[in-house]
Every structure is written in C-alpha cells, then in structure tokens.
C-alpha cells in the first residue's frame, strides 16, 4: 500500500515574516478519504502545492512510498503521475480551446503515446460521464462542467493521491453527488482523496479522517467526531446534525 508522508515540513513564502507551514507531519494511505480543514490562510493550499512538488519544503521531508521526494525533472514527472491536484477555480486549470485537447494534456505529459492517450481520454470521459463534452470548446462549458473536466484532466494521469482544493462549495448538490460518486469508484480502486473544504457538515458525513490546520500547524487529526469534539465551532454549523460536538455559540 502506497503512502505519502509529510515529516516536519516547514515553508515560508518570500517576503513573509511568518512561516506558512510550521512543522507539518502526517501520513496518507491509499484508499483513504481525508478532509483537510482549517480557516482561510491556515496553510491548506500551501500544503497541497508541497505535495505536488510545485513548492519545496525549506525544512523537513516529504516521502512517497518511503522514498524521499526529489525535484529533478524525471522525479517530478513521476511525482505528478502519483499526486494529482485539482484547484479551486477550474478556469485556472483549463487552458486548451477544446475539451478533448485539454484532457489529453496530462496523459501525453506522463509519456503515453497519442493512441494510448486517446484511449485514456475515452475511459476517463466515460468514468466522469462527459463523453458528450469532448468536442466542445472549453469556454462554452458551465461552471459544473468545467469542474468535472478539470477533475478528469487530473484523473487521466491515474494518480494514487488526489488533492482537491475546495471545489465542491461552488457546485450544486447534483454535481457534488456526481463528483463524489466518481471519487467513491476510484477510492475503491485504491485512490486516496484529500479534500480541502470548509463544509464541516459534509466532512462529518464523508471523511474517514480529518486533518485540521491552524496557522500552518496540524492542530488535530483523527476521525471527524474526535476532531470536531476538540474544535470550537459556531453552533449553527451543526444545527441540523447533532453529534455532541463542542460548539461555542
């Protein structure tokens, strides 16, 4: 079973006094459903960029399958094949004029031939139920369709760990269900989904494990009920859902 391990990772953005990540440590395993929660600016997005090798830890180490991450070209290609990231705004992820071309980008980048890439595009389009969009221009897609295509563009690389940065919040419930159904199918096959979100109700229903970040530190991690019992959450969050969590009015 593959693992992604953060070990005492520190990171500070240029020109900032305070570190964005201050000694982050945790391990992710294949087939897990993990929710990454925390207030705005707590370091969730920075952590996601570290996992994908876009940012590098200034102190500490990241291991994938017990091997330390390296940042040469070959290692990064291998890393991005295994760790996918779906960003919050699909408009910032889709670059090509047509959906088919956009989907094929990741597949060709990991070294598949044109024939293999085309086959992979068809498989992913079927999984995401977006075959009818393949010939469409990206500008004509709805918000939900763009999100699905952005997700499919990452899934085409068949990652083992998928970081998803707050994409559900802007979608209608039907589109959310569609995306969660895709996740469920892939989690059963061994994908680990790490979902950054602010929706605590959703987290309580969905996640196997919660990682709570505060000011660049993993303050709590564990099962949703365990973590929520430690948190001070405004009571309206759990108004319709009684878990006996610690609310603070």
């Amino acid at each position: 079973m593959k693992q992604l391990t953060f070990e005492n990772v520190h990171f500070r953005y240029k020109g900032k006094k305070e570190e964005a990540l201050k000694g982050i440590s945790f391990t992710l395993k294949q087939g897990e459903k993990v929710a990454l929660i925390g207030r705005n600016g707590s370091g969730k997005s920075t952590l996601i960029l570290q996992a994908n090798g876009i940012l590098r830890p200034q102190k500490g180490k990241i291991y994938i399958d017990h091997k330390e991450l390296r940042y040469d070209h070959h290692s990064l290609v291998e890393l991005r094949r295994q760790v996918g990231v779906v960003f919050q705004n699909p408009d910032e992820q889709l670059f090509s004029a047509s959906v088919l071309q956009d989907l094929s980008f990741g597949a060709l980048n990991i070294g598949l031939s044109a024939t293999q890439a085309e086959q992979r595009v068809m498989e992913i389009a079927e999984l995401c139920n977006c075959q009818h969009l393949l010939d469409s221009p990206t500008f004509a897609l709805s918000g939900g369709e763009k999100t699905i295509i952005a997700l499919a563009g990452i899934l085409i690389m068949q990652p083992t760990f998928l970081f998803v940065d707050e994409i559900l919040g802007s979608l209608d419930v039907w589109m959310q269900e569609r995306i969660l159904a895709i996740f469920d199918q892939l989690i059963n096959k061994g994908l680990c989904v790490i979902l950054a979100t602010h929706d605590l109700n959703f987290v309580s229903r969905w996640a196997d494990r919660v990682i709570y970040l505060q000011d660049g530190v993993v303050l709590y991690q564990g099962k949703p009920q365990e973590v929520f019992s430690q948190l001070c959450v405004p009571d309206f969050v759990f108004n319709h859902w009684k878990l006996g969590v610690n609310t603070c009015g």
């Binding site: 991005r80 910032e92 090509s96 980008f105 980048n109 990452i154 690389m157």
Partner: peptide
C-alpha cells in the same frame, strides 16, 4: 494572478514547457 495560477496548474499536470495535446 490568473496567469500565475495557470502556471501552477500546468506544472501540476506535468507541463514540461510545451503544451502537448491530441490532434483533432
């Protein structure tokens, strides 16, 4: 800002400096 974020997203998808896509 958007171009910077697009750059990050492309890197995340294994971009190596050329936008390789399937031909229609």
């Amino acid at each position: 800002q958007r171009s910077r974020r697009l750059n990050l997203a492309l890197q995340g998808r294994g971009w190596d400096g050329t936008l390789k896509v399937l031909n229609p």
